[in-house]
C-alpha cells in the first residue's frame, strides 16, 4: 500500500562525492506519481549523476534515495534489477546490443524479464509505429540515425509500461524537429500517467514542453537543486 503523498522517487538530503570532491550536496527532491520534471544546469553540474541516483545506478554518499518507497541501500542487486523494470531510462549516448535488430533491442526489457517479444507482438508493433520505426525494425543499431536511436531508446524504455521515465539529454544528438517529436512522445507518456524526469540544458525544449504540459523545472547550481524559472 503506497504511503499517502509518497513520491515514486524521493531524494532526501542526498549528497554524492566522487574522487574526493562533493558533486551533489543536500539534495531533496520528490517525484510525485504522474509528474513531469525537467532537470537543468550547466554541463558538469551533476545532472547525469542525479539521474543515476534516481535509478539505483549510484548510491548516495549521504542522505537517502527511496525508489518506490524503498531505500536503495536496502535493495539487493536483483531488487535493483526488478525496480529498473519500473523505471525506463533514456541516455544521450544510448547503448544497444549492436548485433540484434532494432525490434529485438526494443523488446529487450521483455526478454530479460522472461516475457518474450513474440508474446508482446502487437504491443511491440504498436510501439514501433508510435516511435515511427516500423520500417526500421530489421535494421541493426549502427545503421540508425541519431534521432532513430533516441526514438528506439525511448521505445525500449517504455515497453514494460514503466511508472517512471528518466531521460538524460534525450535531444542532445538530434535536430530541432526530432527533438520536438521526442518531446511530444514524452508528453504523451506523461498524459498516460507516467512520471517523467528529463535532464537537459536545452531551455527551448523546456519552453516548448511547458506549453504542452505542467512541468516543474529543477536547476542544479552549486551542487544543490533549486526550483527554477516559473517554479521559483
Amino acid at each position: 500500500m503506497p504511503r499517502a503523498g509518497a513520491g515514486v522517487i524521493e531524494l532526501e538530503n542526498v549528497a554524492y562525492s566522487y574522487g574526493g570532491g562533493e558533486l551533489l550536496s543536500d539534495i531533496s527532491v520528490k517525484l510525485a506519481p504522474g509528474s513531469f520534471h525537467f532537470l537543468t544546469g550547466p554541463s558538469g553540474a551533476g545532472k547525469t549523476t542525479l539521474l543515476k541516483l534516481c535509478y539505483g545506478a549510484l548510491l548516495p554518499t549521504a542522505g537517502h534515495v527511496r525508489l518506490f518507497e524503498t531505500d536503495v541501500r536496502a535493495l539487493e542487486r536483483d531488487d535493483v534489477a526488478m525496480i529498473r523494470r519500473k523505471i525506463g531510462v533514456v541516455h544521450q549516448d544510448v547503448q544497444f546490443l549492436d548485433h540484434l535488430p532494432v525490434a529485438d533491442n526494443i523488446a529487450l526489457p521483455l526478454t530479460v524479464s522472461g516475457r518474450h517479444a513474440e508474446a508482446a507482438g502487437p504491443d511491440l508493433g504498436e510501439l514501433m509505429a508510435w516511435v515511427g520505426l516500423t520500417n526500421r525494425a530489421g535494421a541493426v543499431p549502427p545503421e540508425l540515425s541519431g534521432g532513430e536511436r533516441q526514438r528506439a531508446a525511448l521505445a525500449r524504455a517504455v515497453i514494460m509500461s514503466p511508472d517512471v521515465v528518466l531521460a538524460d539529454e534525450p535531444t542532445g544528438n538530434v535536430d530541432w524537429d526530432m527533438s520536438q517529436r521526442l518531446l511530444t512522445l514524452l508528453v504523451e507518456l506523461n498524459r498516460m500517467g507516467k512520471t517523467v524526469l528529463i535532464a537537459t540544458h536545452d531551455l527551448s525544449l523546456i519552453r516548448a514542453a511547458k506549453a504542452q504540459v505542467q512541468a516543474r523545472v529543477l536547476r542544479i547550481s552549486n551542487r544543490r537543486v533549486q526550483l527554477a524559472g516559473a517554479d521559483l
Binding site: 534489477a81 529498473r84 531510462v89 529487450l108 526489457p109 530479460v112 525500449r156
Partner: peptide
C-alpha cells in the same frame, strides 16, 4: 562490458 551494461539498464538480473 557494453552488453552487460545495457542488460543491467533494462532490468536484467545478475543470474540472467
Amino acid at each position: 562490458a557494453q552488453v552487460v551494461a545495457v542488460l543491467r539498464l533494462v532490468g536484467a538480473t545478475d543470474s540472467y
